[in-house]
């Protein structure tokens, strides 16, 4: 059956299509569900890996295309005015996350801006499942999901960390929106179902809502 959900472009099918159902689930709490889960779709995800010798040249190219200079240190995140995030996920390696689905345009623009600079520009838009978790007990769920320290003193938003999430390797991006701390998880697409099951089973004890 074609996926007619408005969140996906014609023909696109999320890896969570058969797993995700909107609603409120789990334990009933007086305060209501203490965890909110949602999937982010329609993103452009492009990874840029520059050669160390050329790093000063990759920066301006990324800035030209995204509007923000790529952060130099692994674990740093910078956000452009239009919400595009640039995460440094390793030495000379950045993941660019843009909020509209236009991977071809972005890869082309980056390649042009880079010119002769040696840097690999790879579209990963289809290769990741992206899930957001927020709410008073989001941190408690994350404590079950990952072994790293997520305390705001250690990971002040915005920031990122590539680590183990539910036993698979993925990226945790931390944002602060309306004074709320939000975790955005990027996992390889093939793990999407597994991640969703893990998060929902863990969050059930706190009550969780799934939003579109």
């Amino acid at each position: 059956m074609p996926d007619n959900s408005p969140k996906t472009l014609p023909g696109r099918r999320s890896a969570l299509a058969s797993h995700l159902r909107p609603g409120v689930f789990g334990a009933q709490c007086e305060r209501g569900p203490l965890v909110t889960l949602s999937e982010r779709t329609g993103l452009t995800l492009v990874q840029v890996t520059a050669r160390a010798a050329d790093k000063r040249k990759a920066g301006p190219a990324i800035k030209k295309v995204t509007g923000v200079s790529p952060p130099p240190k692994t674990g740093e995140t910078r956000i452009a005015d239009d919400g595009t995030a640039v995460h440094c996920i390793g030495p000379e390696r950045w993941l660019i996350v843009a909020e509209t689905a236009a991977p071809d345009a972005m890869t082309a623009a980056l390649r042009e801006a880079l010119g002769n600079t040696t840097a690999a520009v790879v579209d990963l838009s289809s290769g990741r499942a992206v899930v957001r978790i927020s709410g008073p007990k989001a941190a408690a769920v994350m404590m079950a999901a990952t072994p790293i320290d997520l305390h705001p003193d250690v990971l002040p938003a915005p920031a990122c960390a590539h680590t183990l999430i539910a036993q698979a390797a993925g990226l945790i991006a931390v944002f602060e929106e309306a004074e709320e701390r939000i975790f955005e998880l990027h996992l390889q697409r093939s793990y999407a179902g597994h991640l969703w099951e893990f998060l929902t089973e863990t969050a059930a004890q706190y009550g969780y809502s799934v939003t579109d």
Partner: peptide
């Protein structure tokens, strides 16, 4: 060697 490696296993069906 000037070479960059990226895993794309999950990006392609």
């Amino acid at each position: 060697l000037d070479v960059q490696l990226t895993s794309v296993t999950d990006h392609w069906a």
